[in-house]
Amino acid sequence: MSEEKNIIQPAEQASKFVNPLYAKREVTGPDGIKFIVDPLRDYFSDQRPQIYEPNSIPVIEKFLNWARAESLWVLGFGTGCGSIEIAPLLTPRFDAFRYGVMPRPTPRQSNVFIISGYLSIKTLKRVVRSYEQMPNPKYVLALGSCTINGGMYYDSYNTINRLDHYIPVDAYVAGCMPRPEALLAGFNKLKELIKDGKAENANEYAKNFDWYKANQKKIIKDWNMPDYNW
């Protein structure tokens, strides 16, 4: 898996936008030996994502899926106008803690990524980084019509139209904007999917890695991060 070549951007595009600090260049060391420095390759791991098979014993996997479904830790990353709908979820009126939903500040500890509305290209770059840093059973809940077909920003030069071309999506919550009740319904739908064992999109992402990367690199022109952000 790791021997496969990474998807490298066209050379002229890469040289055009990469910060000269990160550009590939030849450096003369203090001892006079010349060597090539490529910070985007040298400082980062270029390992590709792995596919983690579910537990082979169905009973154990069913139990673990139940635990995953009942303990959804949400990454605190609001991308668009929908992030204003996430805050009331934790207030007494809606109280998502009842369903095991808890906000977490770091992608390493979270399982659910709520894409809350439109995504500009600049945000998509950060979303891809955060999504790839989350540990393996990870789920994406796409909020609002902007993530489905672009919504009211369908003709904007700067916002994406279809989220599922860039990261895999488990459940959509339609609306512009969906109310917090709709978001709770989305959480419950996600729970059903996880309990049925149908939410293995992290593995799908690893399987179709090349396709996702090609789509991402098509619009993120100044690609100055590793292909997979460990």
Partner: peptide, 13 residues
């Protein structure tokens, strides 16, 4: 549940 889920996370780094 949180404890079970955290021990069942598949990828660690």
């Amino acid at each position: 549940i949180n404890l079970f889920k955290n021990y069942a996370i598949r990828s660690t780094l």
